[in-house]
Write a protein that binds this DNA or RNA. Sequence first.
DNA 1: CCAAGGCCGGTTTTT
DNA 2: CCGGCCTTGG
Length: 773
Amino acid sequence: MEINNNNKPNNLAERAIFSRRESKFLSELNIMQREAVETVDGPLLVLAGAGTGKTRALTARIAYLIENKYAKPNQILGVTFTNKAAQEMKLRIAKYLGETVEGMPWLGTFHSIGAKILRRHAELVKLKPNFTILDTDDQLRLLKQLISFEKIDEKRWPARSLAGLIDHWKNNAWIPDKLPPTEVNKFDGKGQKIYKLYQERLRILNSVDFGDLILFPILLMQSNNELLEKYHNIFRYILVDEYQDTNVSQYLLLRLFAEGHKNICCVGDDDQSIYGWRGAEVKNILSFEKDFANSKIVRLEQNYRSTPHILGAASSLISANSSRLGKKLWTNISEGEKVRLINHWDGNDEARWIGEEIESLGFGTRGMKPFLYNQIALLVRASFQMRTFEERFIQLGLPYRVIGGPRFYERKEIRDAIAYFRASISFDDGLAFERILNTPKRGFGDKSMQILNELAREQNIGLMSAAKFAIDNGKLPSKLTIELDNLLKNFKRWNSDFFDKSKKHTEVAEMVLDESGYTEMWQSEKTPDSAGRLENLKELIKALDEFENMQGFLEHISLIMEMETDKDIPKISIMTLHAAKGLEFPVVFLPGWEDGLFPSQRSMDQKGKIGLEEERRLAHVGITRAEKYCVISFASNRRIFNQWQNTIPSRFINELSEENIEILESQNAFQSYSDGWNRTNEKDQILNHNNYNSPGWKRMSSKIQKKNFSLNKEFAPFIASIPENFNKGSRVFHQKFGYGIIEEINSDNVKVIFEKSDSKDIKASFLIHEDDV
DNA sequence: CCAAGGCCGGTTTTT
DNA sequence: CCGGCCTTGG
């Protein structure tokens, strides 16, 4: 087989190095992956289907570039969409190159790289280098102010939709003065005006929003040739992950950078483009060849992840889409399970069934070895679907975690604390100041807040400066003036403490929370969750400890909203299909395949066929997450807006190729259409259902009982004996308690000392030998 | 100024 | 069923 060798170094010494390294990571690659790695110069598009080793190729490419001295680590621009992806890539590169790789400063998300560039040249766009990055909450607060200043009815023109609009404009790299005519008059005819005001206000607050992190670097590079050349010199090689998700702005920025060495390598999969709604342009990947002259395309089509049945089902589904570049995924993984399809009576039954199925999978069922809970994922279309499952799993005692759920940094107490830190670090950060001005209660209500905000606007200054002004000019009642003066003095002190190198930032942070009365506020509150909030604050300080200083930490959290939580116990992952992209699991459940829910009615209404195709890609992403076992389910009834609705199966179900599907026997009650359920009034339905009196439920519950019985029988022989490889000292695994060492064995009971818990007497059947895990 | 209670409206996906 | 927003009463 011929491989593109054009770019291999030629002198002997380098070739010697090359051949040595080659064995290290190139040998793990297939022909096409190698081509993606070794086609070093010029624009390259790698079309990589799901599970085809995209990340492997990408990281090998970076390692290859460094190893063969095409570029130093700091001359490679590597862009990903999530911090997780960036993190993983760094780890893998380090593994390829040995432990000695120094960090790659330009490997990160679009937004973090944008922020880095912008901090270096903030003055050029009239910002200070320590600008704050607003989160959605702050942004909304600011927009609300503007909307009310403009006397716009917020009921009809909500801040949220304005935020969406501005986001949309920034995704397209439209600055206020260059809005297309069609956009100018959106939002009650005042779109452009408010956009301008908003940017003006951001500048005064020394803040940027997410969109600015891409937009400003573009403006910088477009308006300053010298600067652009400087970056051309730095970025000798550019790599982009998930290219199908880039929006116009991101594309423009990449293009500006790529004009230098023209070494841009984009990796993506048009079939996994699922972010059209937030500005991603599939067009970018579809027109790569046109956009970058003399480009080359490499296709990765060998799938290493899924069984042929899973792959077959996914391929048949996605083939219903018309706008595709087209790929044929194949695998040489041998036959596995077919994709299962099951219908349920309603959402609760679906959750009940999946709960049971997961329990069975934990022991080994359907001829498969037992799975650990962290090998199992539940992927839903919309987050409201999660709750039913959570409730069910709690009842069953199944450990789970919600990915992308309520996030640590979004909790009230954490955001409050951070607002204190932000206002301490930057006196321009009026939004942070506004947030905590009356938290804890200091007697500032709507009235005084309004006075301050008006002052800020009149004088074109930030809220803290406005506060100072109000004190000096007696704009507030004396009581508030004293209070405010006190607070400002505190902030001054905290500020110098944070910048005092002899003081530890974590201690200053604790001091800020204590002296401001914030900790006390929670201590004196007796609601059940106030203790938890104090715990969270401690966690926050702990997280803070991992950073050099407060600025570093604030930068981190504005870009990363996630935090590592305990992962000692394997947990079922519950997440949206969107959040699942890039991940893989041995077992995947895909519930809720009903028309209107999935595909989502809203997507179809808004964007018609385009929307439907994106939904289909989402389904394709879902199925292709699965390695060994994939279950698709749909319910005949679902409660939406607290109303029971008859639902029809998702049109995607009929697009699955039959030979890859096995239909599981369900306890469904389609018959119910004729047994009086259909046209009874809503109340009766709910009543019936809650009381579990319906014929459908009775029928079902008897089946469940039978099923439980037979399950236990199946387990009987399993329970009776102790596996051969269980000995004193063996390391074993338990789904709930994690790993432990066997201390004693008596008949079928085993005493285990768990690493993360005490010792326990446990039936051997609940344990798995570590070798079998 | 604040806390509590009632009412309405909205629920896709997020760096 | 939840949260945001408004009204009401202290």
